[in-house]
Amino acid sequence: CHSECLGNCSQPDDPTKCVACRNFYLDGRCVETCPPPYYHFQDWRCVNFSFCQDLHHKCKNSRRQGCHQYVIHNNKCIPECPSGYTMNSSNLLCTPCLGPCPKVCHLLEGEKTIDSVTSAQELRGCTVINGSLIINIRGGNNLAAELEANLGLIEEISGYLKIRRSYALVSLSFFRKLRLIRGETLEIGNYSFYALDNQNLRQLWDWSKHNLTITQGKLFFHYNPKLCLSEIHKMEEVSGTKGRQERNDIALKTNGDQASCENELLKFSYIRTSFDKILLRWEPYWPPDFRDLLGFMLFYKEAPYQNVTEFDGQDACGSNSWTVVDIDPPLRSNDPKSQNHPGWLMRGLKPWTQYAIFVKTLVTFSDERRTYGAKSDIIYVQTDATNPSVPLDPISVSNSSSQIILKWKPPSDPNGNITHYLVFWERQAEDSELFELDYCLKGLKLPSRTWSPPFESEDSQKHNQSEYEDSAGECCSCPKTDSQILKELEESSFRKTFEDYLHNVVFVPRKT
């Protein structure tokens, strides 16, 4: 048989008469490798580009789960590009990614509803959504962080984005990388972005840091009482949809009607710091009717980097990364020049730590249904340095008659930039024990000054392991946590139920 035959053949030295091919099969003959313009397919066939392209389009058009959109890589027609490569849609070739590779997620039936953290986790790592997304989240724990972890990498949506009755959302900033909504599939009414009845939605994105392009379709905003109209108009300008909307697409009466839409800028007039305090004062603000001013709200939190936005980490279910302080308005003076500047002394802060701070007014709604208010920009203030805590785990070892090696770990709280350490030492008198000992005694162990690591005695271990207080009263049991108490109650309830079950099964009433 021919060298490319495997198993047997019907005619000697003829690659077209093989029972099976050793390498690849091409047009009725066995070959060692697939010549151009053919590609290896499933490690035994040679196919042309049209064959591989037909497989790709067949799966793409069917949208069946589990099928493969075949691509070409290293002269092979394979189910998908290997790690580190992405497909070129024009020629199906796998090309190296520039940075992290995109991950295209194809949605069944063309859309997916995100109504819980669990459903959001199914899209973790996706960068391109081939379909439409509907966000409908009523509640949950730590929602802002969970949504950002699972949806934060999405850069492109081919269909539309719909935010509907998501009472738990305060902001859409968890879509931190969303840059493009194509609108290839539109919501009824030709809408590519749809926001309806979101009672706590206050911000779409921080438009000073976020760009969003909507290729096709219109915007729809109705019944978002805490979303200011200025935020919607800003989205029109940034996304390129200005002029597409009709009169009733953006409701003037049901958007922002319960919001404090600040239209003035508060400026800080005085800032002073110490290692654990920050004193702030800002310019006074009074609405047209000074009785509408209820006070100020001061927001602050630790910020290692200057990239904080107002609604980071917030949701309507209680999660809030900001510390909020309510401040009463100052006494009002008739003389504008003698107006008191409101302020606040922030206490209990960490030394040498940068804080993000902003302040906003708290006002009631005027009778004319106009909203007044003022808010400052987010500023960054760093507390002063102070003395560091003591170095940890000092170790001293003498390696000769004239040297001592000293080692330690950095302090747990540096409280500033540590530039150097101060080492103090003092000579001590020799131990009298060394002169009084009889060095001729056998088995004498000389006193040693070398360091030995501390260890816990058996008594201390027994005390720590004991669940009861000892007789001397030195140790006591740790208080039980809520989960331990709940577990004990469940076990007790189970024992009672099981005992009742045994009584009912074992003891049967005697027939009379």
Rank of each mutant, 00 (worst) to 15 (best):
A316H: 00
P330Q: 14
T386A: 15
L219R: 03
G110Y: 13
K162T: 02
Q121T: 06
W352G: 02
R179P: 00
I357P: 01
F268M: 06
K234S: 07
W408T: 01
C317K: 02
L196I: 13
C126G: 00
N248M: 09
L266T: 05
E111S: 14
A168M: 05
L180W: 15
S116R: 04
L362C: 10
D206F: 05
N141K: 08
S208I: 11
K253I: 10
L293R: 07
D393W: 15
L204C: 07
E368I: 12
Y194L: 08
Q121S: 05
G152C: 10
D292R: 12
N320W: 14
D206V: 09
F175P: 00
Y160F: 11
Y194I: 12
F299S: 02
N142T: 10
L265K: 09
T213Y: 05
I278R: 00
D115L: 02
K337N: 15
L147T: 02
R244Y: 15
I154Q: 00
E302R: 13
I379V: 07
D328N: 11
Y305Q: 00
E122P: 08
L147E: 00
Y160M: 14
G125F: 03
Q339A: 13
Y355K: 00
A195T: 05
L298F: 14
P410H: 09
S401R: 06
T323P: 02
F174R: 01
L212H: 01
E264K: 03
I188N: 02
D326H: 01
D206N: 08
H106W: 13
K112Q: 06
L172E: 00
S208F: 13
S333F: 15
G343R: 06
L133H: 00
L204H: 01
L108C: 03
T113M: 12
S319N: 07
F220D: 11
D326N: 15
N136K: 09
R347D: 10
I404N: 01
Q339G: 12
D206W: 12
N211P: 05
I114S: 00
P391S: 02
G373V: 11
K277C: 14
Q245E: 14
N150T: 09
D276V: 01
F175E: 00
I181S: 00
Y300K: 02
V308R: 08
N142Y: 07
L143Q: 15
L108E: 11
T254R: 09
G318L: 15
G159L: 00
P410E: 06
I157H: 00
I232A: 10
R176W: 01
D393M: 14
Y194S: 08
Y160E: 02
S402V: 15
V104T: 06
D393K: 15
L265G: 05
D315R: 12
Q245F: 03
S319A: 11
T364L: 01
Y223W: 10
E264S: 05
K218Q: 04
G183C: 00
L161A: 05
Y223T: 13
S208L: 14
P351R: 07
N200Q: 15
L219F: 08
K277Q: 02
K409D: 10
M235E: 00
Q203F: 01
D335F: 08
L143N: 03
G256A: 15
E184A: 09
R281P: 00
L294D: 04
E231Y: 05
L345T: 03
L331D: 12
F365A: 00
P394I: 04
Q382M: 04
K177T: 07
S192M: 02
Q354Y: 07
L186P: 09
L279K: 08
S239W: 05
F220N: 10
S274T: 11
F221V: 10
R369V: 08
E237K: 14
R138H: 03
I278H: 00
L201D: 00
K301G: 03
K360N: 07
E122Q: 03
C317P: 06
E156S: 04
S400A: 15
G140E: 12
N340F: 13
L349W: 00
W207V: 12
C105T: 00
L219V: 07
A144I: 07
L229M: 03
D335R: 11
E262V: 14
E302H: 15
L161H: 01
V363E: 02
E146V: 05
H222L: 15
K234T: 11
V128D: 07
P304R: 13
A356E: 04
I214N: 06
A144H: 15
R370T: 07
T386L: 03
E184D: 14
L186H: 09
T254D: 10
P284L: 10
F275M: 05
K350I: 08
C261M: 03
V390R: 09
L143S: 06
V238R: 11
L161W: 00
R291W: 15
I163P: 00
Q354W: 13
Q306L: 07
Q354L: 09
L147V: 02
P288H: 11
G183T: 02
N141T: 07
L212I: 11
L212T: 14
L392N: 13
V128R: 15
D393S: 07
H341F: 09
S398C: 01
K103P: 07
L172M: 09
G318K: 15
Q306T: 15
F296P: 06
V324P: 05
E187W: 12
L180Y: 12
E231P: 01
I181N: 00
Q121W: 15
L153C: 13
A259E: 04
L151T: 05
Y191H: 03
N320S: 08
C126T: 01
A120S: 09
E310W: 15
S398T: 15
